[in-house]
Design a binder for these strands. Structure first.
Lengths: 201, 201
DNA sequence: GTCTATATGACGATAGAC
DNA sequence: GTCTATCGTCATATAGAC
């Protein structure tokens, strides 16, 4: 099930300078707390410890910062997607993807809500072809072609991804440590998938 | 299972003038498109067809608009919660709540993401006691006390609410009409709950 | 209840010194 | 690569006429 795409790793290969990475880290933290529109370049500059002009030297516009941050996050997801796409059997590929996505969602839960729900992030992801293409690869693995009804397959995939992305930010689970949340989530989503346990692990 | 609260309907009883309601409707639409921080009072005024000053006559600050809009949405949820709280049996109460919440989430899916994820909405809901109290009533019905493990109960409730709120805004289901999405979602979440079908319908 | 006009400050973004 | 200083625009919010 290898994807017949021009380049299967469009995001992981992008390189950033150290100064750019400092800016992106601060931006991601602030986006997670206040959303993209609620985060000003002054706030980012203050957190990095430089002036606004220094931030503008690293990125020409605020939008470029958003794109860089989004691409950086998708680069992490990309490894999980490639691992899933390498699996020959669809149900097993789906299980691999879910396990790794849950891993990521739990450890990076502070930023999950912004990355999946922020209006500016959604707009940017929709306007740039590499992002759109990546999302369709993700959903291709997630959609269950065994379902006779396409509607049920679509809603199931939507429920599954929403359950992961949304549950990790719920106040009910903020006090749970990563490992507990991770294990419980995998257990619950496997039950949702109605998949048998893997033979060796 | 009647809640022993001072007033069980803190939101539905609030009254607004017609002019305030026009402002709140416009604000909700714009919040849904651009988020709260991405929506200016000028945009709201333009959509209503008045000037900024006229909007400021209805609400002293932007924050007051956010509070009014949030309270208005919780008022709709309040009816669903009261119906659930009136049920003597917990599992049945949970099923009633889920069915009605899914109804609301589907028909109002344009605004669900903002209302559950926008950083400003979340901050406002956390800062005001009536909102906090309402949310704890919601979770009280949603939490499954039959679960031996509190962790599993918490994560299950988080997964369930996230699945509903998050799935209705997924691009995979935007083309589905309300009735189809509603029916499919109820079917899938009932399966998740592992509840038996109700005796009479 | 809505208007014009304005105060005050923050926003994204740029020029040019170092 | 970072700084100071600044531009033009837009933000929230207010005063006072009608």
């Amino acid at each position: 099930m290898l994807a017949d795409t021009p380049s299967p790793r469009p995001f992981s290969t992008i390189r950033w300078t150290a100064a750019q990475q400092r800016t992106m880290t601060a931006a991601l933290d602030l986006f997670g707390m206040h959303g993209v529109s609620g985060t000003s370049l002054q706030m980012i500059a203050d957190m990095v410890g430089v002036t606004k002009a220094a931030v503008y030297y690293q990125f020409k516009t605020k939008e470029e910062i958003v794109i860089a941050v989004a691409a950086n996050e998708l680069a992490i997801l990309e490894d999980a997607l490639l691992a899933a796409e390498a699996e020959p059997e669809r149900p097993h590929a789906r299980r691999v993807l879910l396990t790794r996505v849950i891993d990521l969602a739990v450890t990076r839960r502070r930023w999950v809500s912004t990355l999946t729900n922020d209006p500016v992030i959604i707009r940017v992801l929709g306007e740039h072809e590499p992002f759109r293409h990546f999302m369709s690869r993700l959903y291709a693995v997630l959609l269950d072609e065994r379902e006779a009804d396409d509607t049920v397959a679509r809603v199931s995939a939507a429920v599954l991804s929403a359950a992961i992305a949304g549950s990790v930010v719920n106040p009910l689970v903020t006090e749970l440590d990563d490992e507990t949340l991770r294990t419980t989530l995998i257990q619950l989503t496997q039950r949702m998938l109605d998949l048998p346990d893997p033979p060796n692990g």
